[in-house]
Design a protein around this nucleic acid. Structure first.
Lengths: 234, 234
DNA sequence: CTTCCATTCGGCACTCGGTGCCATTAGCAT
DNA sequence: ATGCTAATGGCACCGAGTGCCGAATGGAAG
């Protein structure tokens, strides 16, 4: 850290620009707000804007890198006795904990990110970095390369679960994000074990001894369904 | 279907443009190929190009809508006794079955889609439509609204699993896509059931036949883990 | 205070993707 | 030939993003 500031002072900041832009977005819509609008609202030149954000699409994300780093640190601090899936669930929840004052602001931001097509698409690139954090952690826990199938699949699934919960959160004004995330994780745990396939009720665990070795897979509340094996063979 | 063709004949087709473009992409790279290049290579005007594809990013996707429709039909044709997760697994595999002659071509296309940042981002919009198919099916099976948490989470997870398998497929030249998809599904099934959660041990072997993992959902390696609640306190 | 230097600012011109407008061209039917 | 229909493609225009370069700012050294 250098305590001295050399040269001209920056005339604004990422955070300020992000805030100004978000205000304009909710007022006029994302697509109807040009970079020129944002720049002039912030009192800077258009060219300068692109020195603070490399893309208009990055505005709602703010300083994502920092957040990712703290999530990484949080994961690393968890005891290894904690089951992997639970560790990830906790990290996701922790990652989405916000001071109450910011949640309405955060809602607006997420509303944009999950609604505006341009942003939905662009966000994928951020999610990729996020997934890498999850995959790296999972890989270390499982002692396999982080680019191998298992960690990657887990990372994708965890991302999907989180985004599903977010979408639900946006639909209900008074919903609690951590609660939604937690139940989403639980739901998928059961679904992939076969439990939720039955109608509505949590019938599930018909029998671990269902038919065969399939174990988890076949614990489904379904009678038999010889299924999974022979069918998709070529 | 009208047998008569009124007015001027189209001078090319989506498929032809897609093929021409893909050739240029692999030769000069996606970003170094302009729409003008593609249009002139196809012998059409730039303006006309945008009547065949609404975006340069759509080129590698071809007629995705048709494929989606057939996947929807395939799912609808499956017996309801088949466990949900197995049905989805089969549909994904079916969806990715290709005539051997096309796989090298398909490899190039997927290479682009999963590598070029612009395309990675844009593809998200296609994935959303794909996920909707999965979510709709899951929702019907579970008798809940298709925009509720469970089907959405499942759809995300299934997408993630499929993409993970794709990424693996691209890494190994002689890999078999259906096999990878199948084992990816099996892996996640086990992971989410807790089998892979154990501290370090590489229990989580990908799939093959290693599914000796017994009990279903509650086989989770976690004692009971009052954990998830109190731990992440700040 | 003046000079020097580091750093930011911002105008300008340019590329490229994408769109609206509209005259032109190509085919089929009468 | 005439008329209708549908595809074509040129042109002007917009907005995002980039390279270039001179101008402005402010601390430090003289």
């Amino acid at each position: 850290m250098s305590t001295v500031r050399l040269g001209r002072q920056p005339s604004t900041s990422q955070a300020e620009l992000s805030h100004i832009a978000l205000t304009l977005f909710v007022e006029h819509g994302f697509d109807n707000t040009t970079v020129d609008d944002i720049a002039s609202a912030a009192g800077i030149g258009r060219r300068t804007f692109f020195r603070y954000f490399s893309s208009k699409n990055d505005l709602p994300w703010g300083d994502f890198e920092t957040q990712l780093a703290s999530m990484r640190a949080f994961l690393a601090s968890l005891p290894t006795e904690l089951p992997l899936i639970d560790a990830l669930c906790m990290a996701v929840i922790e990652f989405n904990r916000l001071p109450p004052a910011e949640i309405t602001y955060h809602r607006r931001r997420m509303e944009l990110l999950l609604t505006v097509p341009t942003l939905v698409a662009h966000s994928t690139l951020r999610y990729a970095a996020w997934r890498q954090v999850v995959a790296d952690y999972a890989a270390e826990r499982m002692r396999v390369p982080s680019d191998s199938l298992e960690p990657q699949a887990i990372a994708w699934a965890v991302l999907g679960v989180s985004l599903s919960a977010y979408e639900q959160w946006l639909k209900e004004l008074d919903a609690d994000l951590p609660t939604l995330l937690s139940s989403a994780f639980e739901m998928v745990r059961l679904s992939f074990a076969g439990a939720s396939a039955g109608a509505g009720a949590g019938t599930a665990r018909a029998a671990s001894g269902a038919s065969d070795a399939g174990g988890a897979a076949n614990a489904v509340g379904v009678p038999d369904a010889g299924g999974r094996d022979g069918r998709h063979a070529d």
